[in-house]
Amino acid sequence: MGFIYLLSLLAGIACMLLLDRRFRLYFWRDARAATVVTLVGLAVLLLWDLAGIRLGIFFRGEGQIATGVLLAPELPIEEPVFLTFLVLCTMIIFTGLQRMHERHKARRSS
């Protein structure tokens, strides 16, 4: 039983939130909207995972760095954490790129 994977994911999420806070991108810009987007993303991706498990496409591995704790057959506790990270990562990249684009535009017009 290992915690490296779970801890890395949590560390990844923490880094995303630090970027968020520093540049006021997502939760720090509109907490309500960010919560809705994160929950919708998580729900869709979880449904997708469950469908894939049900169809016999995805299987959990026996990796040493995972806890081995299961939420449902073939669905380890790390999976929803990973999916949350994926959603956060998407939104931080998107809002970050958007910010860079705005700055670029503002500089050119001034």
């Binding site: 987007v37 997708w48 998407t90």
Partner: peptide, 18 residues
């Protein structure tokens, strides 16, 4: 397809809400 679906769905949802 996972990141593709994320990029297609989440930014527009965010923009619609904000």
């Amino acid at each position: 397809s996972y990141p593709l679906a994320c990029a297609l769905l989440l930014p527009p949802l965010w923009l619609a809400l904000t």
